[in-house]
Nucleic acid binder design. Structure first.
Lengths: 247, 247
DNA sequence: CGCACACTTGAAATTCGTCAAACCGGGTGG
DNA sequence: CCACCCGGTTTGACGAATTTCAAGTGTGCG
């Protein structure tokens, strides 16, 4: 299933039409897809394949394109001069990279974006993309809703890093991903795909890999979660939630 | 100069017209003010006075109003269940509360806003406010620019909290405020108003008051800065900048 | 088979937090 | 005018969370 994406840039299969894409109705432009799938499919310039750990866009640059992730995971991040890294958010299938893009007109991007897994991107020109987002009241509302979720997640993460212990941050992250993936029909709060290396978790939560490992190991030993590089399972949702709230 | 604002809610002076307001051209709607000051003045519903340490808007609520700060400082924040607090950004004269408001249509606010000093707010109805922001290309560009600055500051702060030491965070905060106040003609990189309590600094940077105090005291002893509750002075900008970059 | 790369574990070092007390300037009431 | 409060700042001693350094373990892949 994932294997053809792994083949890199040479995948020549017939482009997926938005009306057969199981994700399309959950994207930023879902209402337009529902009303007129062909419109989006036609607007899409191309489908781009990206290998794991490749840069999709770079801080300081000003791309004329907007991307929707159709398959795979990516992340937004900033680097400090001495290679320290802060991951600002994870990008999952159905997400648009990124909401702020709507605002950047001729503005330098405040972060870079990199793939974590093999990724398939639907590419749009920004001006055309923005044009469809205001087409109907439903579409406008959808943009507002999506933007609000994105910002709330950013603010919550900031608050977590500033004011919560390692356990609390981990719990919040796991619950955030469970919720977002559930919305996209890509998982449930019992179990969902989890391609993050512990290094990604560390860089997202403002911790070190070593400490992430210890904390994660504790959660596993306590029977709260179960995981590997493919999948995260929540064994005791109640405890995880109260940990997210209190720690 | 500041004394009439200190009088609290009873200030009955004639409402300031936008074309005589020294800040108006530096606001989000600066281009419209430049083209037609009367339009904004007329649109403004009222000028509201807020005493220090009062709630301006509350997380989870969905106000129909948008505010521009005409005088005084405020801050955006989130609270955890056990009274821990994270300040997400400081709001200075000329700022609009808040950019995200443009997106919240019927969405719950992701943070609360509180005054730090006596504050004077220009109050607008959201729908009318949004309408003027798209009037001209220059106005649209201004919104994009302002939003980009806001978001960049949010992302930088998150990165600071996650990946920088206390000294680095402090240096970044001081430089951010110096830059923003300079843009509004409210200060310079040598000296600017600084009404923050050390508790605000701590809650913004993810530190404790005690540790903020120690770090601040070090910077003062090293001759890098000088401050009290009214004013911050940068004595050695070069060192402060390299500290912001490296720590 | 063996090299990479990720994950794991241990012990020591640091940064930062907690608790507690002292200080300090400004306002208020006697 | 002075004593007393009060909120905010400052300092000290101690403790906890997290980092750093260093060395293993495991595993997929060439």
């Amino acid at each position: 299933m994932l294997t053809q994406a792994r083949s890199g840039l040479l995948d020549l299969e017939c482009p997926l039409a938005c009306d057969t894409c199981p994700l399309a109705r959950n994207t930023l432009y879902g209402p337009v897809v529902s009303a007129d799938p062909a419109q989006i499919t036609h607007l899409r310039k191309e489908i781009r394949h990206v290998a794991p750990d490749k840069t999709i866009s770079r801080a300081g640059e000003n791309s004329q394109f907007v991307y929707t992730i159709e398959l795979g995971w990516a992340f937004q991040f900033r680097m400090l001069s001495d290679r320290r890294r802060q991951i600002l958010s994870f990008v999952i299938p159905g997400d648009t990279i990124s909401l702020d893009i709507l605002l950047w007109e001729a503005v330098a991007a405040p972060f870079s974006v990199k793939s974590m897994t093999p990724v398939r991107l639907c590419v749009f020109e920004r001006a055309a993309f923005k044009a469809i987002l205001g087409q109907t009241p439903a579409q406008t509302a959808r943009v507002a809703e999506e933007a609000a979720i994105y910002l709330e997640n950013i603010y919550r993460r900031t608050t977590d890093i500033g004011r919560r212990t390692a356990r609390g941050r981990l719990a919040q992250l796991i619950l955030e991903l469970a919720a977002r993936l559930t919305c996209r029909n890509l998982g449930s709060s019992e179990s969902f795909p989890f391609p993050l290396k512990q290094e990604h978790i560390a860089d997202a939560l403002g911790l070190t890999v070593v400490y992430v490992n210890r904390t994660l190991t504790n959660l596993r030993k306590d029977g709260i979660i179960e995981f590997d590089r493919q999948r995260m399972s929540i064994l005791n949702l109640g405890v995880l939630q109260s940990m997210a709230d209190e720690d």
